[in-house]
């Protein structure tokens, strides 16, 4: 059951207070040398986190993008060229499927927002375990 063990190894990083994040919008969180885009999709009472860098032209911009849905699937649109990415699995919904986003779990405790990173403090993705 390697995948369950991985999940138990999630490290929860305190990002900010819930009301630091605009309703139905995003902020950028600094995690070590990384930038994470954190979204509060308040219409759906959902939280999402992805990498902040847009894979298209490598711009640190996704946290400033508009969020919304496409056929019910939550997504974010990059402010630069409006490419859209699924907030659920990070896949690019626009055209080129190969560039996708890393996504992270989010949990809320009281008014505190935590972003989960796998494998202790390392950036391990689920598939590599």
């Amino acid at each position: 059951m390697s995948s369950t063990t991985t999940l138990t190894e999630v490290h929860w990083f305190f990002a900010c207070k819930t009301d630091d994040v605009p309703l139905n919008g995003g902020v950028c969180v600094k995690y070590k040398e990384e930038q994470i885009a954190l979204f509060h999709f308040s219409r759906r009472e959902e939280w999402y986190a992805t990498q902040n860098m847009c894979p298209h032209k490598h711009q640190m911009a996704l946290s400033r993008g508009m969020i919304g849905t496409q056929n019910g699937e939550p997504k974010v649109a990059c402010p630069f060229h409006k490419k859209t990415f699924s907030l659920e699995d990070g896949r690019c919904l626009s055209d080129d499927a190969e560039c996708s986003l890393k996504t992270y779990p989010v949990k809320i405790e009281e008014d505190r927002v935590y972003i989960g990173f796998y494998g202790g403090f390392d950036k391990l993705s689920l598939t590599s375990v």
């Binding site: 139905n24 999709f41 219409r43 759906r44 993008g65 508009m66 919304g68 849905t69 496409q70 019910g72 939550p74 997504k75 649109a77 409006k82 859209t84």
Partner: peptide, 19 residues
């Protein structure tokens, strides 16, 4: 925007209808 979506639209909006 939210009230417009509630009263006149459906779903959760997107980068086209929001602006």
């Amino acid at each position: 925007y939210d009230d417009v979506l509630d009263e006149l639209g459906h779903g959760d909006g997107c980068e086209v209808c929001k602006p």
